[in-house]
Design a binder for these strands. Structure first.
Lengths: 214, 214
DNA sequence: CTATAATATGAGCGATAGCTCACCTTATCT
DNA sequence: AGATAAGGTGAGCTATCGCTCATATTATAG
């Protein structure tokens, strides 16, 4: 009975040689995404670039999208490292200083691998397995909400959930768009102006006294 | 000499029958994009859905991407109609009221065809011919900048270009994300809260007095 | 050393994609 | 009515894609 014909058990990974293969594949995928774009990133090409046979590729990745998902996950982990650090720093600061730290971190995060970030954002379709890869957003979302709760006495908004949506969405869009489409804004001193204005936008929004103070 | 073998002159369009064919193709493309997603939208399928032969398709559209580009252009025109109208209304209003109008219009615009908008934003890769289809953004951009110039006496920012970037990017991201990913925010009275908060964000940012008043 | 599991290989299958071209059909002009 | 062009057709070509599987190589266990 129990027939395991070497097929379909894909996704194993334990020996040491294997990890190298998997890493090579993920890195090759990232390189090809950047160099050739998403739709030229075929499984055959990725395997070739990784110096690995397609057979091996399919032993660890069930389908093409899984490779891209792995790249996205790796990238998101790097982003989150920076963002997490910024939240820890911001924790002990007054709101305006804290927001400034967060905005600066968001820009820094987008700068880790702008080319890859661009391909991921502009060319990679969010369908199939990739549909829900935005859990990164959720992380940032809950971190920010916690931040607001911790500084509730300094903020004048009453719906923390709505405020979180407003702030996270705006900061992400501003930093993303600046890095991807307006790199001229980030040259030398110009970057500071952007940080200042974005901080003014968000901190100003949070500081305003609510209409009805209890 | 001058050999015109019926090939490569694609892209003609003058008779009346032809317009119908072109329209049918664009509409079929939109329908398929919404129903089946971007990567299932093959030229063969589009031609079939339009009730037209592939030969005809390639007489008016040089490649697959051209069809998607046409759909995007048509959609953008509808968006711009709403946005343009809102700017005209806003022209004669004080800043806060004006911004409120613009935010509401942005939401309304995203609601024209949310499903299509979603596919276009999440699945359609910005590569090749589609790379620069964001001239919509540029339109909104220059409209907003004109708006700020016209109300310069009421706004406390000194770099109008930077301020435009901040405002347009934020409003677009907030309304887009709300419509696409947080439809719960737009049910009944909740929509007004979003408009109010977004208005507070932007109007507050614009109203704040600049650091150094002349 | 041998048996067994883990890992690696790559020719090649079936499917489908984008697109061409030789040929009909309908309209317009005189 | 006949000529010429505009519009329309679809079988089918080539290319490539995602993916399988029979087989070979390498590591671990007894």
């Amino acid at each position: 009975m129990a027939r395991k014909p070497l097929t379909t058990p894909r996704k194993t990974a334990t020996q040491d040689r294997a990890r190298h293969t998997v890493d090579a594949l993920v890195e090759a995928t990232a390189r090809i995404l950047v160099r050739d774009g998403f739709d030229r990133a075929s499984t055959n090409r990725i395997a070739e670039e990784a110096g690995v046979s397609i057979g091996s590729l399919y032993q660890y990745f069930p389908c093409k999208e899984a490779l891209t998902a792995a790249v996205i996950e790796r990238h998101n982990q790097q982003l989150m490292a920076i963002v997490h650090g910024a939240f820890q720093q911001a924790e002990t600061e007054p709101v305006e200083t804290g927001i400034r730290l967060l905005v600066a971190a968001a820009i820094e995060a987008h700068r880790i691998a702008p080319a890859l970030h661009c391909v991921l954002a502009e060319q990679t379709p969010r369908s199939g397995v990739l549909a829900n890869v935005e859990l990164f957003q959720r992380s940032a979302y809950s971190l920010f909400q916690s931040y607001l709760e911790a500084h509730r006495d300094q903020v004048g908004v009453d719906d923390l959930d709505l405020a979180t949506f407003i702030c996270v969405t705006s900061i992400e869009a501003l930093t993303h768009t600046a890095v991807i489409h307006r790199s001229d804004m980030l040259s030398e001193g110009r970057a500071d102006e952007l940080v200042e204005e974005a901080t003014r936008l968000i901190a100003g929004y949070l500081k305003l006294p609510a209409r009805r103070a209890a």
